[in-house]
Write a protein that binds this DNA or RNA. Structure first.
Length: 272
DNA sequence: AGAGGTACCTGGCAGC
DNA sequence: TGCTGCCAGGTACCTC
């Protein structure tokens, strides 16, 4: 499932082939993603040149002269750049053909992704306007997390996963970061000390950073028609390890639900 | 305004 | 084997 490191790796993988390229055709086979893909997209993009591709949170932004194509991969979405695209399969919902004979193919079995076009500034789009800082920038640090959490009663895990606070921390990284920072995921966000938040911000940055680095190496076959996703592999300490021994103290890892989300933690290492 | 719940969707798996 | 039911995941939007 695309988390921020994977979206970033996808961005790096597609940039080189697509920037400066002219769109020849947009083929929408299945418009019913999370939001219906507007049919005008085809007319809008045809003949236009990709000026740049950027990432904001888990959104990919394809910049054109007249506006921005906004793409979200949802939970199961994947992009491939293909030289000779094989016949589309069941979940290959969109193809964008370029003048250099590359095809950008969107595959999304669960159809939680989104594809839309805005002719105004993308950053002002309702989906993006309220997003918090990028976790890998200097704007995001322990003091920031501390300051914004004062008075907040929700659990620190839900707080971390709120995109208005910080983007790119999904269920997996929230659990991992809280384990590394030795913080109980159920603790109210407003009760966490400044020092703990400083540790937390640090581990969030380092875990995302190393995932991006590993994603970069595993995604080297990005263009292969096989379309192998090349998910980054990082050693997960708690996520998916409920009932197994804690890597630090050997206690049994516990699974609870926080905000309808499965949450694994070590009751001994993450007491406070 | 903050907190929590719901919807969207399908593949994969457990349990019968 | 074939069915049913549950779960995973991100996030916009709804309700209290």
């Amino acid at each position: 499932m695309p988390e921020l490191p994977e979206v970033e790796t996808t961005l790096r993988g597609i940039k080189r082939e697509l920037i400066g390229q002219k769109v020849m055709a947009v083929i929408i086979r299945q418009p019913r993603l999370r939001f219906p893909i507007p049919s005008e997209i085809e007319k809008e993009l045809k003949g236009q040149v990709v000026e740049n591709i950027e990432r904001r949170a888990k959104y990919l932004l394809f910049k054109f002269k007249t506006g921005t194509l906004i793409l979200h991969l949802g939970m199961s979405g994947r992009l491939c750049v293909l030289q000779d695209p094989p016949p589309p399969q069941k979940h290959d919902h969109v193809d964008i053909h370029f003048a250099n004979h590359f095809t950008l193919r969107l595959t999304d079995p669960r159809r939680f992704g989104a594809l839309l076009f805005t002719s105004s500034l993308a950053e002002k789009h309702p989906f993006l306007i309220n997003l918090g800082p990028e976790p890998l920038t200097d704007q995001f640090d322990g003091d920031y997390l501390f300051n914004r959490s004062r008075g907040r009663k929700l659990t620190v895990k839900s707080y971390l996963m709120d995109g208005r606070i910080v983007v790119g921390v999904g269920n997996i990284y929230a659990a991992e970061a809280l384990f590394l920072a030795k913080i109980n995921p159920q603790k109210p966000a407003g009760k966490i000390t400044r020092v703990k938040y400083q540790t937390l911000a640090k581990v969030i940055k380092s875990v995302l950073q190393s995932a991006i680095q590993q994603g970069g190496t595993t995604l080297k076959d990005f263009k292969k028609p096989s379309g192998q996703p090349g998910y980054f592999r990082i050693a997960l300490q708690v996520y998916g390890r409920a009932g197994k021994p804690c890597t630090r103290c050997k206690s049994k890892l516990t699974s609870i639900r926080i905000g309808q989300r499965n949450t694994v933690y070590c009751p001994r290492c993450q007491k406070n």
